[in-house]
Amino acid sequence: MEKTLSAIAQNLDLMLGGLGVTLVLSVLIIFFGTIIGFLGGMGLTSGPRWLKALLRVYVDIVRGTPLLVLMFLLFYLMPEFGVDITGFQTVVVALSLFAGAHISEIVRGALTGIPKGQADAAKALGLTYWPMMREIMIPQAMPAVVPPWTNTAIEMVKGTSLAFLLSVSDLLFETQNVVERTGIALPFYFTAALIYLAVNLLLSRFGHWLEQRNRYAA
C-alpha cells in the first residue's frame, strides 16, 4: 500500500503532464469542431444546393466511419500527398472533423426547428443573412444546441485518448507508460479514470451553465 502511494506520488507529475496534452487537444478540437459545426449546420439549412449536397456527403461519411479509421486514414494518407503531419496534428484534425460533422447535424436540427415565420419577420425588417443568423436564428437555436453539444464535447474529451495509438503523450499514453514501468496497474488506471471523470463533470457543469444562460422566458 505504502509502496503504491509513493509510486503514485512519484509519477503523478508525469500523468499531469499527460493531462495537459489531453486538455490542449480537447480545447482545440471542441473549438474547431464548433466552428465547423455551426458553419456546416447553416450550410445544410440555407446553403445553395451544391453546398448542401457536399456537406451532406461530409457529414454522413464522417458519422458512419469509426473515429479511429478517420484518424489512421489522415495519418497514413497525408504523407502520400507530401504533407508531413504529426500525431498531435492528426488527432486535432480528425477529431475536429468528427465533432464538426456531429455538431453540423445538431445545429441543422435546431435551425430546422425554428418556425419559418421567424426568418420572414427578420427579412421583412430588412436584415441580411448574417445579421439574421447572428441576432435571430442562432440565439433561438441555442437552447436546442447546447445539451447535445455538451455530449459531443464530452465524447471528444474521451476521444482524445485515441491519441495514445499515435504515441502522442496524452493522459492515457502517460498512464500506460507508468503502468508498464512500475508494474502497478489498477491504481494508476483508476487515477486516470477519475481525472477524465473530473474533466467531463466540469464540462457538464459548463454545459448546464450555458443552458441557463441561453434560456429565455417561456
Partner: peptide, 19 residues
C-alpha cells in the same frame, strides 16, 4: 459514460490479469 472506452479496454486487458 465519462471515461474513455480505450481506458476500460486497457484496464480489463492489461490491468486485470496483473491483479
Amino acid at each position: 459514460r465519462n471515461i474513455p472506452l480505450l481506458l476500460i479496454v486497457l484496464i480489463y486487458y492489461f490491468g486485470l490479469p496483473m491483479v
